[in-house]
Design a binder for these strands. Structure first.
Lengths: 192, 192
DNA sequence: ACCTGAACACCGTTCAAGT
DNA sequence: ACCTGAACACCGTTCAAGT
Protein backbone atom coordinates (compact mmCIF):
# COMPACT_ATOMS: atom_id res chain seq x y z
CA UNK A 1 0.00 0.00 0.00
CA UNK A 2 1.14 3.47 -0.84
CA UNK A 3 1.75 5.72 2.15
CA UNK A 4 4.62 7.78 0.72
CA UNK A 5 4.01 11.50 0.95
CA UNK A 6 5.98 12.32 -2.18
CA UNK A 7 3.98 9.98 -4.41
CA UNK A 8 1.26 11.50 -6.51
CA UNK A 9 -2.10 10.07 -5.48
CA UNK A 10 -4.77 9.03 -7.95
CA UNK A 11 -7.33 11.75 -8.57
CA UNK A 12 -10.81 10.99 -7.37
CA UNK A 13 -12.88 9.15 -9.96
CA UNK A 14 -15.45 11.94 -10.40
CA UNK A 15 -12.69 14.51 -10.76
CA UNK A 16 -11.05 12.52 -13.49
CA UNK A 17 -14.36 12.08 -15.30
CA UNK A 18 -15.10 15.80 -15.08
CA UNK A 19 -11.67 16.59 -16.42
CA UNK A 20 -12.20 14.37 -19.44
CA UNK A 21 -15.69 15.68 -20.10
CA UNK A 22 -14.49 19.27 -19.91
CA UNK A 23 -11.76 18.54 -22.41
CA UNK A 24 -14.19 16.87 -24.79
CA UNK A 25 -16.69 19.72 -24.62
CA UNK A 26 -13.98 22.34 -24.93
CA UNK A 27 -12.62 20.63 -28.02
CA UNK A 28 -16.02 20.64 -29.62
CA UNK A 29 -16.72 24.26 -28.66
CA UNK A 30 -13.32 25.49 -29.84
CA UNK A 31 -13.71 23.61 -33.12
CA UNK A 32 -17.05 25.23 -33.76
CA UNK A 33 -16.54 28.71 -32.35
CA UNK A 34 -12.80 29.14 -32.10
CA UNK A 35 -10.65 29.45 -29.01
CA UNK A 36 -12.77 32.34 -27.74
CA UNK A 37 -15.83 30.19 -27.11
CA UNK A 38 -17.60 31.02 -23.78
CA UNK A 39 -16.31 28.88 -20.95
CA UNK A 40 -19.56 28.77 -19.00
CA UNK A 41 -21.27 27.00 -21.89
CA UNK A 42 -18.45 24.44 -21.94
CA UNK A 43 -18.92 23.78 -18.23
CA UNK A 44 -22.67 23.45 -18.70
CA UNK A 45 -22.28 20.99 -21.59
CA UNK A 46 -19.91 18.96 -19.46
CA UNK A 47 -22.52 18.89 -16.71
CA UNK A 48 -20.41 20.70 -14.11
CA UNK A 49 -20.47 24.12 -12.48
CA UNK A 50 -18.21 26.85 -13.78
CA UNK A 51 -16.07 26.64 -10.65
CA UNK A 52 -15.22 23.05 -11.49
CA UNK A 53 -13.86 24.11 -14.86
CA UNK A 54 -11.64 26.67 -13.16
CA UNK A 55 -10.60 24.08 -10.63
CA UNK A 56 -9.18 21.93 -13.39
CA UNK A 57 -8.00 24.67 -15.74
CA UNK A 58 -6.98 28.03 -14.27
CA UNK A 59 -7.62 29.81 -17.57
CA UNK A 60 -8.42 29.41 -21.24
CA UNK A 61 -4.80 28.81 -22.20
CA UNK A 62 -4.52 25.86 -19.83
CA UNK A 63 -7.52 24.30 -21.54
CA UNK A 64 -6.06 24.86 -24.99
CA UNK A 65 -2.69 23.59 -23.88
CA UNK A 66 -4.18 20.36 -22.52
CA UNK A 67 -6.14 19.85 -25.75
CA UNK A 68 -3.00 20.33 -27.82
CA UNK A 69 -0.90 17.86 -25.91
CA UNK A 70 -1.31 14.85 -28.23
CA UNK A 71 -1.02 16.98 -31.33
CA UNK A 72 2.14 18.55 -29.96
CA UNK A 73 3.72 15.20 -29.22
CA UNK A 74 3.04 14.05 -32.76
CA UNK A 75 4.45 17.24 -34.23
CA UNK A 76 7.64 17.09 -32.18
CA UNK A 77 8.13 13.48 -33.08
CA UNK A 78 7.84 14.45 -36.71
CA UNK A 79 10.34 17.23 -36.12
CA UNK A 80 12.86 14.87 -34.58
CA UNK A 81 12.56 12.60 -37.58
CA UNK A 82 13.04 15.50 -39.96
CA UNK A 83 16.29 16.47 -38.26
CA UNK A 84 17.66 13.12 -39.43
CA UNK A 85 16.00 13.11 -42.85
CA UNK A 86 18.26 12.79 -45.88
CA UNK A 87 17.17 16.00 -47.65
CA UNK A 88 17.45 18.97 -45.32
CA UNK A 89 15.63 21.17 -47.81
CA UNK A 90 12.62 18.89 -48.03
CA UNK A 91 12.73 18.43 -44.26
CA UNK A 92 12.42 22.18 -43.73
CA UNK A 93 9.55 22.41 -46.19
CA UNK A 94 7.71 19.54 -44.53
CA UNK A 95 8.21 21.16 -41.15
CA UNK A 96 6.80 24.46 -42.35
CA UNK A 97 3.74 22.79 -43.82
CA UNK A 98 3.01 20.62 -40.79
CA UNK A 99 3.77 23.27 -38.19
CA UNK A 100 1.46 25.66 -40.00
CA UNK A 101 -1.26 23.05 -40.17
CA UNK A 102 -0.82 22.35 -36.46
CA UNK A 103 -1.93 25.87 -35.52
CA UNK A 104 -5.03 25.41 -37.63
CA UNK A 105 -6.81 23.12 -35.20
CA UNK A 106 -8.96 25.95 -33.82
CA UNK A 107 -9.70 29.41 -35.13
CA UNK A 108 -7.80 31.85 -32.94
CA UNK A 109 -5.02 29.41 -32.17
CA UNK A 110 -2.47 31.14 -34.39
CA UNK A 111 -2.95 34.29 -32.33
CA UNK A 112 -2.67 32.44 -29.03
CA UNK A 113 0.52 30.69 -30.09
CA UNK A 114 2.05 33.91 -31.37
CA UNK A 115 1.22 35.40 -27.99
CA UNK A 116 2.62 32.41 -26.12
CA UNK A 117 6.09 32.67 -27.55
CA UNK A 118 6.70 35.95 -25.76
CA UNK A 119 4.80 35.24 -22.55
CA UNK A 120 6.69 33.11 -20.06
CA UNK A 121 3.62 32.76 -17.88
CA UNK A 122 1.62 31.25 -20.72
CA UNK A 123 0.77 27.56 -20.55
CA UNK A 124 1.59 27.50 -24.26
CA UNK A 125 5.03 29.02 -23.82
CA UNK A 126 7.12 25.86 -23.64
CA UNK A 127 5.58 24.26 -26.69
CA UNK A 128 6.05 27.51 -28.60
CA UNK A 129 9.70 27.48 -27.63
CA UNK A 130 10.09 23.91 -28.83
CA UNK A 131 8.53 24.79 -32.16
CA UNK A 132 10.85 27.72 -32.45
CA UNK A 133 13.80 25.50 -31.63
CA UNK A 134 12.92 23.08 -34.42
CA UNK A 135 12.82 25.99 -36.82
CA UNK A 136 16.29 27.02 -35.67
CA UNK A 137 17.81 23.58 -36.13
CA UNK A 138 16.10 22.70 -39.40
CA UNK A 139 17.04 26.08 -40.83
CA UNK A 140 20.65 25.69 -39.76
CA UNK A 141 20.86 22.30 -41.38
CA UNK A 142 19.31 23.49 -44.65
CA UNK A 143 21.64 26.46 -44.75
CA UNK A 144 24.68 24.29 -44.07
CA UNK A 145 23.65 22.19 -47.06
CA UNK A 146 23.45 25.28 -49.22
CA UNK A 147 19.80 24.85 -50.14
CA UNK A 148 18.66 28.09 -48.50
CA UNK A 149 19.34 31.68 -49.45
CA UNK A 150 22.05 32.89 -47.11
CA UNK A 151 20.02 35.75 -45.64
CA UNK A 152 17.09 33.61 -44.53
CA UNK A 153 16.94 33.33 -40.74
CA UNK A 154 15.12 30.94 -38.44
CA UNK A 155 13.01 33.92 -37.34
CA UNK A 156 11.90 34.31 -40.94
CA UNK A 157 10.89 30.66 -41.07
CA UNK A 158 8.93 30.90 -37.82
CA UNK A 159 7.23 34.04 -39.03
CA UNK A 160 6.21 32.34 -42.26
CA UNK A 161 4.74 29.43 -40.36
CA UNK A 162 2.69 31.68 -38.08
CA UNK A 163 1.56 33.84 -40.95
CA UNK A 164 0.47 30.79 -42.92
CA UNK A 165 -1.53 29.48 -39.97
CA UNK A 166 -3.26 32.80 -39.59
CA UNK A 167 -4.03 32.89 -43.30
CA UNK A 168 -5.53 29.41 -43.13
CA UNK A 169 -7.86 30.55 -40.36
CA UNK A 170 -8.96 33.67 -42.18
CA UNK A 171 -9.21 32.35 -45.73
CA UNK A 172 -8.60 28.67 -46.36
CA UNK A 173 -6.02 25.99 -45.84
CA UNK A 174 -5.57 25.88 -49.61
CA UNK A 175 -4.68 29.57 -49.73
CA UNK A 176 -2.23 29.10 -46.87
CA UNK A 177 -0.59 26.22 -48.66
CA UNK A 178 -0.28 28.27 -51.84
CA UNK A 179 1.45 30.92 -49.74
CA UNK A 180 3.94 28.45 -48.33
CA UNK A 181 4.50 26.92 -51.76
CA UNK A 182 5.38 30.30 -53.24
CA UNK A 183 7.50 31.23 -50.26
CA UNK A 184 9.49 28.05 -50.47
CA UNK A 185 10.35 28.74 -54.08
CA UNK A 186 11.71 32.09 -52.96
CA UNK A 187 13.73 30.59 -50.14
CA UNK A 188 15.73 28.34 -52.38
CA UNK A 189 19.26 29.30 -53.17
CA UNK A 190 19.12 30.50 -56.77
CA UNK A 191 21.08 28.15 -59.03
CA UNK A 192 24.51 29.66 -59.53
CA UNK B 1 -30.97 80.79 -47.54
CA UNK B 2 -31.18 77.04 -47.56
CA UNK B 3 -34.66 75.61 -47.19
CA UNK B 4 -34.28 72.53 -49.39
CA UNK B 5 -35.26 69.33 -47.66
CA UNK B 6 -32.72 67.23 -49.57
CA UNK B 7 -29.75 69.33 -48.53
CA UNK B 8 -27.65 68.11 -45.65
CA UNK B 9 -27.81 70.56 -42.74
CA UNK B 10 -24.83 71.55 -40.68
CA UNK B 11 -24.43 69.48 -37.54
CA UNK B 12 -24.85 71.34 -34.29
CA UNK B 13 -21.59 72.86 -33.08
CA UNK B 14 -21.37 70.76 -29.91
CA UNK B 15 -22.11 67.60 -31.86
CA UNK B 16 -19.31 68.34 -34.27
CA UNK B 17 -16.91 69.05 -31.42
CA UNK B 18 -17.85 65.82 -29.67
CA UNK B 19 -17.35 63.90 -32.89
CA UNK B 20 -13.85 65.28 -33.30
CA UNK B 21 -12.94 64.69 -29.67
CA UNK B 22 -14.16 61.12 -29.83
CA UNK B 23 -12.06 60.49 -32.92
CA UNK B 24 -8.98 61.97 -31.29
CA UNK B 25 -9.38 59.93 -28.10
CA UNK B 26 -10.16 56.76 -30.03
CA UNK B 27 -7.04 57.22 -32.12
CA UNK B 28 -4.92 57.56 -29.03
CA UNK B 29 -6.57 54.60 -27.28
CA UNK B 30 -6.31 52.34 -30.35
CA UNK B 31 -2.67 53.30 -30.82
CA UNK B 32 -1.84 52.40 -27.26
CA UNK B 33 -4.10 49.40 -26.65
CA UNK B 34 -5.09 48.19 -30.10
CA UNK B 35 -8.51 48.24 -31.73
CA UNK B 36 -10.01 46.36 -28.80
CA UNK B 37 -9.58 49.26 -26.36
CA UNK B 38 -12.65 49.80 -24.10
CA UNK B 39 -15.09 52.27 -25.61
CA UNK B 40 -16.36 53.66 -22.33
CA UNK B 41 -12.89 54.93 -21.46
CA UNK B 42 -12.73 56.65 -24.86
CA UNK B 43 -16.05 58.38 -24.20
CA UNK B 44 -14.88 59.43 -20.75
CA UNK B 45 -11.61 60.86 -22.09
CA UNK B 46 -13.58 62.78 -24.68
CA UNK B 47 -15.74 64.21 -21.89
CA UNK B 48 -19.01 62.72 -23.15
CA UNK B 49 -21.36 59.97 -22.01
CA UNK B 50 -21.14 56.53 -23.56
CA UNK B 51 -24.46 57.09 -25.33
CA UNK B 52 -22.96 60.01 -27.20
CA UNK B 53 -20.23 57.80 -28.58
CA UNK B 54 -22.83 55.35 -29.83
CA UNK B 55 -24.85 58.21 -31.26
CA UNK B 56 -21.92 59.15 -33.48
CA UNK B 57 -20.54 55.68 -34.13
CA UNK B 58 -22.90 52.70 -34.06
CA UNK B 59 -20.06 50.31 -33.31
CA UNK B 60 -16.32 49.86 -33.05
CA UNK B 61 -15.88 49.32 -36.78
CA UNK B 62 -17.51 52.65 -37.58
CA UNK B 63 -14.98 54.34 -35.31
CA UNK B 64 -12.06 52.55 -36.93
CA UNK B 65 -13.42 53.26 -40.38
CA UNK B 66 -13.71 56.98 -39.68
CA UNK B 67 -10.17 57.05 -38.30
CA UNK B 68 -8.84 55.32 -41.39
CA UNK B 69 -10.47 57.65 -43.86
CA UNK B 70 -7.49 59.93 -44.52
CA UNK B 71 -5.07 57.06 -44.57
CA UNK B 72 -7.29 55.21 -47.02
CA UNK B 73 -7.50 58.17 -49.34
CA UNK B 74 -3.73 58.45 -49.38
CA UNK B 75 -3.30 54.74 -50.04
CA UNK B 76 -5.78 54.68 -52.90
CA UNK B 77 -4.19 57.71 -54.44
CA UNK B 78 -0.87 55.90 -54.29
CA UNK B 79 -2.51 52.87 -55.87
CA UNK B 80 -3.87 54.89 -58.74
CA UNK B 81 -0.44 56.28 -59.39
CA UNK B 82 1.10 52.82 -59.33
CA UNK B 83 -1.31 51.63 -62.01
CA UNK B 84 0.33 54.11 -64.33
CA UNK B 85 3.90 53.59 -63.11
CA UNK B 86 6.49 52.57 -65.69
CA UNK B 87 7.61 49.34 -63.98
CA UNK B 88 4.65 47.11 -63.21
CA UNK B 89 6.86 44.81 -61.14
CA UNK B 90 8.11 47.59 -58.90
CA UNK B 91 4.60 48.99 -58.71
CA UNK B 92 3.27 45.71 -57.36
CA UNK B 93 6.06 45.52 -54.81
CA UNK B 94 5.46 49.06 -53.64
CA UNK B 95 1.76 48.34 -53.31
CA UNK B 96 2.39 45.26 -51.20
CA UNK B 97 4.70 47.15 -48.89
CA UNK B 98 2.44 50.16 -48.45
CA UNK B 99 -0.79 48.21 -48.18
CA UNK B 100 0.78 46.01 -45.52
CA UNK B 101 2.03 49.04 -43.64
CA UNK B 102 -1.43 50.59 -43.85
CA UNK B 103 -2.95 47.81 -41.75
CA UNK B 104 -0.29 48.39 -39.13
CA UNK B 105 -1.78 51.61 -37.78
CA UNK B 106 -3.37 49.83 -34.81
CA UNK B 107 -2.80 46.42 -33.31
CA UNK B 108 -5.79 44.27 -34.25
CA UNK B 109 -6.44 46.13 -37.48
CA UNK B 110 -5.17 43.32 -39.70
CA UNK B 111 -7.78 41.05 -38.15
CA UNK B 112 -10.56 43.58 -38.56
CA UNK B 113 -9.69 44.20 -42.20
CA UNK B 114 -9.48 40.50 -42.94
CA UNK B 115 -12.92 40.20 -41.37
CA UNK B 116 -14.24 43.17 -43.32
CA UNK B 117 -13.54 41.73 -46.73
CA UNK B 118 -16.13 39.01 -46.25
CA UNK B 119 -18.70 40.98 -44.27
CA UNK B 120 -20.92 43.19 -46.38
CA UNK B 121 -22.39 44.82 -43.30
CA UNK B 122 -18.97 45.95 -42.09
CA UNK B 123 -18.13 49.63 -42.26
CA UNK B 124 -14.73 48.50 -43.47
CA UNK B 125 -16.09 46.40 -46.30
CA UNK B 126 -15.91 48.91 -49.14
CA UNK B 127 -12.33 49.95 -48.41
CA UNK B 128 -11.34 46.28 -48.20
CA UNK B 129 -12.89 45.72 -51.60
CA UNK B 130 -10.98 48.64 -53.06
CA UNK B 131 -7.73 47.29 -51.67
CA UNK B 132 -8.52 43.94 -53.16
CA UNK B 133 -9.32 45.55 -56.48
CA UNK B 134 -5.94 47.25 -56.59
CA UNK B 135 -4.30 43.90 -55.98
CA UNK B 136 -6.23 42.45 -58.90
CA UNK B 137 -5.27 45.19 -61.30
CA UNK B 138 -1.64 45.54 -60.26
CA UNK B 139 -1.21 41.78 -60.42
CA UNK B 140 -2.77 41.58 -63.87
CA UNK B 141 -0.46 44.28 -65.15
CA UNK B 142 2.64 42.62 -63.71
CA UNK B 143 1.65 39.30 -65.17
CA UNK B 144 0.97 40.81 -68.57
CA UNK B 145 4.49 42.22 -68.47
CA UNK B 146 5.87 38.78 -67.69
CA UNK B 147 7.50 39.79 -64.41
CA UNK B 148 5.38 37.47 -62.27
CA UNK B 149 5.34 33.71 -62.04
CA UNK B 150 2.35 32.56 -64.06
CA UNK B 151 0.65 30.75 -61.19
CA UNK B 152 0.58 33.74 -58.83
CA UNK B 153 -2.96 35.05 -58.36
CA UNK B 154 -4.29 38.33 -57.02
CA UNK B 155 -5.66 36.34 -54.09
CA UNK B 156 -2.12 35.25 -53.29
CA UNK B 157 -0.98 38.86 -53.33
CA UNK B 158 -3.80 39.97 -51.05
CA UNK B 159 -3.08 37.09 -48.69
CA UNK B 160 0.59 38.05 -48.52
CA UNK B 161 -0.30 41.62 -47.69
CA UNK B 162 -2.65 40.61 -44.87
CA UNK B 163 -0.21 38.09 -43.51
CA UNK B 164 2.57 40.65 -43.51
CA UNK B 165 0.39 43.14 -41.63
CA UNK B 166 -0.45 40.55 -39.03
CA UNK B 167 3.22 39.65 -38.69
CA UNK B 168 4.12 43.29 -38.16
CA UNK B 169 1.61 43.50 -35.32
CA UNK B 170 2.83 40.36 -33.63
CA UNK B 171 6.58 40.70 -34.12
CA UNK B 172 7.91 43.83 -35.77
CA UNK B 173 7.59 45.89 -38.89
CA UNK B 174 11.14 44.87 -39.75
CA UNK B 175 10.25 41.18 -39.65
CA UNK B 176 7.19 41.81 -41.80
CA UNK B 177 9.29 43.64 -44.34
CA UNK B 178 11.80 40.81 -44.43
CA UNK B 179 8.89 38.48 -45.16
CA UNK B 180 7.69 40.59 -48.04
CA UNK B 181 11.22 40.97 -49.36
CA UNK B 182 11.72 37.22 -49.45
CA UNK B 183 8.27 36.63 -50.91
CA UNK B 184 8.87 39.10 -53.70
CA UNK B 185 11.99 37.30 -54.73
CA UNK B 186 9.92 34.15 -55.00
CA UNK B 187 7.21 35.83 -57.05
CA UNK B 188 9.51 36.87 -59.80
CA UNK B 189 9.45 34.95 -63.01
CA UNK B 190 12.67 32.91 -62.97
CA UNK B 191 15.00 34.10 -65.71
CA UNK B 192 14.60 31.72 -68.66
C1' DA C 1 -10.34 16.62 -2.24
C1' DC C 2 -13.46 18.33 -5.03
C1' DC C 3 -17.78 20.59 -6.37
C1' DT C 4 -21.34 24.29 -6.34
C1' DG C 5 -23.14 28.58 -7.77
C1' DA C 6 -23.76 33.19 -6.03
C1' DA C 7 -21.16 37.27 -6.38
C1' DC C 8 -18.30 40.58 -8.42
C1' DA C 9 -15.93 42.88 -12.28
C1' DC C 10 -15.72 44.44 -16.84
C1' DC C 11 -17.47 45.83 -21.01
C1' DG C 12 -20.76 46.39 -25.03
C1' DT C 13 -25.14 48.23 -26.24
C1' DT C 14 -29.78 50.28 -25.76
C1' DC C 15 -33.14 53.63 -24.68
C1' DA C 16 -36.23 56.59 -21.83
C1' DA C 17 -35.68 60.91 -20.11
C1' DG C 18 -33.71 65.21 -20.42
C1' DT C 19 -31.99 69.83 -22.73
C1' DA D 1 -31.14 67.41 -32.67
C1' DC D 2 -28.33 65.77 -29.50
C1' DC D 3 -26.82 64.27 -24.89
C1' DT D 4 -27.11 61.67 -20.50
C1' DG D 5 -26.44 57.71 -17.77
C1' DA D 6 -29.07 54.00 -15.75
C1' DA D 7 -30.14 49.48 -17.18
C1' DC D 8 -29.46 45.17 -19.21
C1' DA D 9 -26.74 41.41 -21.25
C1' DC D 10 -22.76 38.68 -21.53
C1' DC D 11 -18.78 36.67 -19.92
C1' DG D 12 -14.51 35.86 -17.03
C1' DT D 13 -13.05 34.83 -12.47
C1' DT D 14 -13.20 34.15 -7.43
C1' DC D 15 -14.44 32.09 -3.21
C1' DA D 16 -17.32 30.81 0.89
C1' DA D 17 -20.05 27.09 1.68
C1' DG D 18 -21.10 22.55 0.92
C1' DT D 19 -20.26 17.18 0.31
Amino acid sequence: VNTGQSLRRQPRADARRNYERLLAEADSAFREQGTGAPLDAIARSAGVAIGTLYGHFPNRRALVSALLKDRNDALFELGSGLLAAPSSGDALKTWMREAARHATAYRGLADMLAEGIGDEASELHSSCLRMSDFAVRLTARARADGVLRAEVTAADISAFISAASWTAERTSLEQAERLLELVMKGLQQPAS
